[in-house]
Amino acid sequence: MKTGRTIPQAKRILSNRLMWAACLGATTIAVLVLSALLITIAIEGTGALSWSFLTSFASRKPAQAGIIAPLMGSIWVCAICAIVAIPVGIGTAIYLEEYARRSRIKSLIQLNISNLSGVPSIVYGILALVAFVRFFGIRSADDAWTFGNAESIFYLQIPFGPSVIAGGLTLALVVLPIMIISSQEALRSVPQSLRQAALALGSTQWQVVWHVTLPAALPTIMTGAILSMSRAIGEAAPLLVIGGFLLVFQTPANLMSDFTVLPLQIYNWAGRPQSDFHKIAAAAIIVQLVVLLAFNTIAIIIRQKLQRPLQS
């Protein structure tokens, strides 16, 4: 006995085709957007790129302006961010993955980290403004604790004020959750059998981590670290809050130097109405994208270098 009406074959084929077309269309949009973005920037920016653009300070005249200060600022801030965020992130990930037992506290900490990763970066700026720049108002800038002398690159004052070190620590706060989560994923992907092998040989917990888990996870951790750093080097909002938006006419000399960074400089120029400034903004974007590309290339090289000894 036949009940039910069969759906015509033609209709099924049509819906199948439509689905395929929709998916392909969507993918094409993504590719087109990226092309439009790159082409716009290339057209606007290549004219302004020159050696003197890379080596000059900012100027009121677009033709004479350059990006040496934000370029060096970005490097300083990003380096400080890396020095702080990478070890702290890996350490936290190790504790959560290798040490902490399943408990309520652990899952709360875990939830807290994923929440932190969703906090807008500008909110971290506010935290940094109060904590790093002003040191909660405990000490005023005029009578700061001073360590070292101004000649040394480790010259330090507390409160930090809107300095390179405050900027680096701010970015470290922003990328820390990303760093933790990616390191955790890397550690989780190490087969349990390797940990068992090491434990069965009489390794302590740390020996398992140091000799087995960490080396095996390192390529993936480094990839995550570099992704975190490319996020950091593109951040502008939190640095803008802590006061990194200065017209700076010198490259940083020590931890207490004033600074600006590339994204802030781009924001500054892009926000002006004159199209000449848009051209140098685009040129600065090209530099920024080249730096990011270099980061990704380094990531790929590290990954391959570290993976080689694992293969026979």
């Binding site: 990226l34 973005l37 920037i41 593109g234 781009i266 892009a270």
Partner: peptide
């Protein structure tokens, strides 16, 4: 290939998208 296109998009600083909105 598409994954790397998306990775590039994900790595672009947001200020660049702001510029793209204004100029394109």
């Amino acid at each position: 290939i598409l994954k790397s296109v998306l990775e590039v998009l994900a790595g672009v600083p947001t200020v660049v998208y702001g510029f793209f909105a204004l100029t394109f």
